[in-house]
Design a binder for these strands. Structure first.
Lengths: 241, 241
DNA sequence: GTGATAATGTAATCAGCGTTACAGTTTGGC
DNA sequence: GCCAAACTGTAACGCTGATTACATTATCAC
């Protein structure tokens, strides 16, 4: 092990694992790069870092192994580049969920649907597995994942909760903690069971039901003391909680 | 790939990956088995399934590679045996948390402390990473993990919530969902950040603070309509929620 | 066109590691 | 003590896969 590592460190110098950022890249190379990243995502998400092999990635992307090494340095570099790119890409929909402002529970349901819609996507599930298992070996990955994903959603959601609080329709002394809890209640352990393959991705009806239950609980957390006149009863399943 | 797999399947027959269960095992072998499982846990938890190598495990356990193969068949068999054993072992403390029955919030804080105490242990974190990443390839593992861990805690906790509900001190129409939500609020995304190495394990004070906040939120979910006279205000940090 | 440069395809290198074979050693019943 | 069976240690075997070397081909400014 030591010999190979040494060699690699010498070679990569300070830019180990970094995608080369030299000025302009030719458009042809840019296309290669995108294709390789796409193929890498498929393979890494399906197999995990160790089981994935570069041959399979090259076969799918159609390019050549040499190009891959020129662009990404080595397997780890490709891996980090792919995960980083996917994190910002997949989570884009989380930062600015396109949800109509209606009564609070309807809006919260909308946000929850957007949230679940993103994290249940196959590539988001793949990201999750990789972040959980490889986070220790690649510390930059969870960093990016949380910054681009959960943290952005939490910031956005907590802004909304502040609005509710100021308007007096909800009681949210600590909006960040409340937003965090919202996410936990919504993805619930359902997400773990889906990601591990114990359960299939729920269909729309089941998902809607689950979300109604989660939002109902969350509403009880932030509901003002007098009870929530602003929350339409129809949006809250009475059989949950 | 096909050749090797074929060979393995032929060899292992119907008992692939199964620990041999023939009648009595000699006490010497039993000791070997325990030592190998212990070493395997260390190595697998540190490296993950693929990166782990059997040589390192044998070196730590002190036995011989032959014995390992006799006992566990192959790497996968050892892995599955180790994870299965650890799941039932680590989670034992979850099934019957030894928590004094006091006012609800104090009791819930006690349960939460027991919960976090278990899942923050280094081997429990290792289990989590492995279940998340290898669950798809080894479907029996998440099965065991959830059955022995979360499900037992949820069952136990929901019994307690039923008691509260019947006594009229809490409003819990669906105790299973409520128990599930309790776990989510308690481990929170804090757990993700610890498991991925983004944050260190919180010290006692920070943990207690976190748990107070989580229990306070949970209490608002199950609090009866009139408000909770049964919950000591001292147990609930007012700055959270 | 033409030559310098960039990009590709292929094959070789090289180490790591799961697995197996086998020869030696210990154990426990008689 | 002795012998079958269980156990151990070591050294191969074979394969996979990351990495590199190199010869070939495309690109583009002039």
């Amino acid at each position: 092990m030591s010999r190979k590592r040494m060699k690699k460190v010498e070679k990569m110098d300070g830019t180990a694992g970094q995608d080369r950022q030299e000025a302009e890249r030719s458009p042809r190379m840019e296309a290669r790069r995108a294709a390789i990243l796409e193929a890498a995502a498929e393979v890494f998400f399906e197999m995990g870092f160790e089981r994935a092999n570069l041959g399979a990635i090259v076969r799918r992307s159609g390019g050549s192994l040499s190009t891959l090494y020129q662009l990404f340095g080595n397997k780890e570099g490709l891996f980090e580049a792919m995960v980083t790119e996917r994190c910002t890409d997949v989570m884009k929909a989380l930062a600015e969920p396109d949800v109509p402002l209606r009564d609070p529970c309807t809006t919260l349901c909308g946000i929850a649907h957007a949230f679940m819609g993103v994290i249940l996507r196959p590539d988001a599930q793949g990201l999750w597995r990789i972040i959980m298992s490889e986070g220790i070996k690649f510390p930059s990955l969870p960093e990016v994942y949380f910054r681009e994903g959960p943290d952005k959603l939490i910031a956005h959601l907590s802004e909304y909760l502040v609005v509710l609080h100021r308007a007096g329709v909800a009681d949210v002394p600590n909006p960040m903690d409340a937003a965090r809890s919202f996410c936990m209640l919504v993805h619930s352990d359902l997400y773990y069971r889906v990601v591990t393959g114990m359960q299939p991705v729920p269909d729309d009806a089941a998902l809607a039901d689950h979300i109604r239950g989660a939002v109902a609980m969350f509403w009880r957390i932030i509901m003002p003391a007098g009870g929530g006149k602003t929350c339409h009863p129809d949006d809250i399943s009475p059989s949950r909680g």
